Amino acid sequence: ANWRERLSRLDCPALVMVNASPSDLPDDPPLPHGGELLSKPLSRHALTEAIRRTRQATLPALPEVAADTATPPEDASRPWHILCVDDTESNRLLLKELILGAGSGVEVSLAASGEEALALARHSTFDLVLMDIRMQGMDGVETTRELRRLGGHWRRLPIIAVTAHVQDNQRRDLLDNGLDGMLEKPIDTAQLSQLMQHHLGIGVDSDVAEPTASPRAIREEDAELAEVDLALGTRLAGGREALAHQLLDQLIASLDETEANIRDATARGDDEALLNTIHALNGACRYCGVPRLALLVETLETRLRSRGGEAVEPLLPDLYAAMEGLRARGTYHASSTTKATANATSSDKDT
């Protein structure tokens, strides 16, 4: 009777460890707030799984929720403040542009690493965090744990994983590690809008909240994929043509460093460093209209994750060729722009 009273006052699930065999435990344990009865002695694995099951059962689902159920900022005069954490510049830029489509009532802060996100969190108030998972240094899971340890509103603030290559077991692990949901790259603006509507009561501008196309939609059997497809890039950028050009320019500007990092990791046989670089390149390609490079990098990352570095070596010459083709195209565009500007200036002088 004493323990029943204690359990009723807990107001949370309980794991009750009992000196009894499993067959002696009651089928209907007195656990008013959920949990489990566990038979002692208890192995570490059994305890871990019991904690996982109990926490999973109490994690909030993400159903369709009316906009007026979102909790407004404590200061109604301030806008919603969203933190985007990603170590790839183009990903941060796209997220910011898409979120700002929600209107003037939103502010966006950007962090290029987990360490930078923690520094911002200690001095700023946020209402939602979009968290890249695979980052150099402190990854997204570790960053989420550290944010939760800050206490206060950080214990309940929505933190959403933004990542690619998420399998069912990885999805469960992310939820178990304190994340509240997932957006899969490339970002589907309709899903982003729905998520913001659920947590904040606001959505992305309907003019851009259309499902984005994916580079993987291009048929692998096509004989020759285009190096640049600006129409595809515009769809990937949420219908923003100017942003598509900007993301393409950033990708091209990053290729020299990316190739150097790939060659260095390959020479050292460092599969982890190679995966980090390929993953970052894959993320950047997902928002650019570069079908040939996007398909190659997607194939490389999938093969690297499943079969290791030796399996990707035959594809590296094609990767380098695709990167060189993009670099040459970028140089050509820059040269053409310079010539056009020079001709216009000469024409003005003649006039």
Rank of each mutant, 00 (worst) to 15 (best):
R148F: 12
Q250K: 11
A226C: 01
A66P: 01
P79H: 08
G239C: 08
V166L: 15
L183C: 08
K40W: 13
D87A: 06
A284E: 07
L316I: 15
H123I: 03
A294G: 08
E298C: 03
E227L: 15
S335Q: 14
A66M: 10
A46L: 12
Y320K: 05
P211C: 10
L195T: 12
A14E: 05
I133M: 14
M17W: 03
P314L: 02
A321F: 04
L255A: 02
D28Y: 08
G101L: 07
T341E: 06
I159D: 02
V312Q: 03
E241F: 05
A253Y: 07
P73V: 05
T302V: 11
A280W: 03
L174N: 08
L255Y: 09
W3M: 15
Q136K: 14
H33P: 10
I262M: 13
L296V: 06
V290C: 14
P314A: 01
L316N: 06
R240I: 11
R219G: 05
L195E: 00
N282T: 10
D87W: 11
P79Q: 09
A253F: 07
S43I: 07
L315S: 13
I202G: 02
I262A: 10
V106N: 07
C288A: 13
R149D: 12
P13V: 03
R6Q: 12
D180W: 08
Y320W: 15
V297W: 08
Q194V: 03
V162K: 02
Q170T: 09
E210V: 13
G137L: 05
V312S: 04
L25M: 08
A117C: 06
A50R: 01
S23K: 13
R122F: 00
D188E: 05
G325R: 08
H165Q: 08
L225W: 06
L10I: 01
L304K: 03
N276H: 13
L83F: 05
G178E: 06
N282E: 13
L59M: 09
D86R: 02
G103A: 04
I252L: 03
G181Q: 04
S77L: 14
Y332D: 15
P73Y: 05
L230H: 11
S306P: 00
V141S: 04
Q136S: 11
A111P: 03
A121C: 05
D86Y: 07
D75W: 03
E241Q: 11
A242F: 01
E107R: 14
M323I: 14
R9P: 00
A342Y: 02
H245Y: 07
